[in-house]
């Protein structure tokens, strides 16, 4: 029941169909911590986080396309 939803205690309603988009905040969080540890304090952290996030999301999308093509095209021909 959406009206009774309590954020952070109960799961977000109606999110099941968009679950794959949740990789974006996940990747941003990982990049924020990784780059905070790795780069010196004076460096452009935000720019590095954005670049790492874009690369990781691109890599995940590329893997998804490759695996999708393998399952949809290659496996039916075997």
């Amino acid at each position: 029941m959406t009206l009774a939803w309590i954020p952070f205690l109960q799961p977000v309603p109606e999110l099941v169909s968009l679950w794959y988009l949740l990789c974006i905040p996940l990747v941003i969080g990982v990049a924020m911590v990784y780059k905070a540890l790795w780069i010196p304090e004076g460096r452009s952290w935000g720019q590095q986080v954005i670049m790492m996030s874009v690369l990781m999301v691109g890599g995940l999308a590329g893997l998804a396309i490759l695996l999708g093509a393998f399952v949809q095209i290659v496996i039916p021909r075997l």
């Binding site: 905040p25 996940l26 941003i28 969080g29 990982v30 990049a31 924020m32 911590v33 780059k35 905070a36 540890l37 952290w45």
Partner: peptide, 10 residues
């Protein structure tokens, strides 16, 4: 602060 921000997001 940067670590805290990233961990809080996750």
């Amino acid at each position: 602060i940067r670590i805290f921000a990233g961990m809080a997001l996750l």
